[in-house]
Design a binder for these strands. Structure first.
Length: 353
DNA sequence: GAACCGTGGAC
DNA sequence: TGTCCAAGGTT
């Protein structure tokens, strides 16, 4: 079942939504540039991440890596350091790899050809459409979570999020609706509507410029669309964390180069359930660390995807300066530059207060 | 196609 | 407190 759209209807959608966007659009820092590199970075950061969180990260990242050449010249370690705390760290690795590809394949210039853009690591159909339409005003469609919600309601699409059927219909609508000129504004207007009025909960239909055309509003199904996809239940995990400071440096462990939080640094950590009675002692022993007290110094709660974490941090001491892999010492004055995991940042923050 | 990948904030 | 969610991409 596919939605039909008359061309007069399409023009009306475009006119009304773009006029609304021109009136109410938020003043976001990446909206003050047409630099495809800067816009690309914002799009990568905004994936599954809130605007308020991204703003500071984007400013710092652009100051440190102002263009694709600078990013290509950087060490991956430093790119991860700038990303530390944002999550989904593969995005940072992909950015760095894509910057290298732009240098090698495109002379350091962000490509304009959609097929070439799509070949860059970490850039899928959405991000390609976003950068090309916003930076170059290319008539490329896009569908993100906002657009999916807006379309599902406007056209009363019943297929569940993530289903093949809904995906096909959403992209078909996006292709038919995107204007030949002003695609960047149109795409951003759709997302802005989803982010500010057509919200997941308690949408503000009273203020919506498209309310008159919304099938779900007419049918009273706005709150039930789009149909959510099933979610995995979350699991409780108990961790113990080892805090060792010596000569103004902290003891960290380098995570493996693949899997969760690949290549990041964290405080030595063990899962209580997997540790048996020995608890922290195995890693403490490996690092020659002596636990100073049996009582945790701080307790921290954290969530990672479908895990709910309760972490207790213990303080230890060691006489050893040189340690085998994966242990590393890092000066406490440089913690802000390191690719630390979110949990580790949280523990260190708690220790300091 | 489903699972995986992080985090902080709203309610 | 638990749950849901936010400008997705990769495997």
């Amino acid at each position: 079942m596919s939605t039909t759209l008359a061309s007069a209807e399409i023009r009306a959608f475009q006119r009304e939504l773009i006029a609304w966007f021109a009136r109410v659009k938020r003043d976001l820092p990446w909206r003050r540039t047409r630099d495809p590199y800067a816009i690309w970075i914002s799009e990568a950061m905004l994936q599954q991440t809130r605007v308020e969180t991204v703003i500071d990260y984007w400013r710092r990242f652009l100051a440190r890596f102002p263009n694709a050449a600078a990013l290509a010249d950087a060490r991956e370690e430093d790119v991860l350091g700038s990303w530390s705390g944002l999550g989904y760290y593969r995005r940072a690795r992909n950015l760095h790899a894509a910057a290298l590809a732009i240098r090698e394949r495109h002379g350091g210039v962000f490509p304009r050809d959609p097929e070439l853009v799509r070949e860059l690591p970490g850039i899928g159909r959405y991000t390609a459409g976003a950068v090309l339409s916003i930076a170059f005003d290319a008539p490329e469609p896009l569908v993100d979570g906002n657009v999916a919600r807006v379309f599902a309601r406007l056209f009363e699409l019943e297929a569940p999020l993530g289903s093949k059927e809904l995906e096909r219909e959403l992209w078909s609508l996006a292709e038919r609706l995107v204007p030949a000129r002003g695609a960047g504004d149109w795409n951003q207007a759709l997302m802005e509507l989803g982010a500010t009025l057509c919200a997941p909960k308690k949408p503000r239909c009273d203020a919506c410029p498209l309310a008159r055309r919304c099938r779900a509003l007419a049918a009273g199904s706005v709150e039930t669309l789009p149909r959510p996809k099933a979610r995995r239940a979350s699991v409780e995990v108990e961790l113990e964390v080892l805090c060792v400071e010596r000569d103004g440096a902290w003891l960290f462990v380098r995570r493996p180069s693949d899997g969760r939080m690949a290549g990041m640094l964290e405080l030595p950590t063990i899962e209580v359930a997997a540790a048996g009675r020995e608890r922290l002692h195995p890693i403490a022993h490996a690092a020659g660390v002596e636990l100073r007290a049996s009582e945790p110094l701080v307790q921290v709660r954290h969530t990672i995807t479908h895990h709910r974490i309760r972490a207790q941090a213990f303080v230890g001491r060691t006489a050893r300066r040189a340690l085998p892999e994966p242990y590393e010492w890092h000066a406490s004055s440089r913690l802000g530059e390191l690719p630390l995991t979110g949990l580790t940042k949280k523990v260190l923050r708690a220790l300091r207060s």
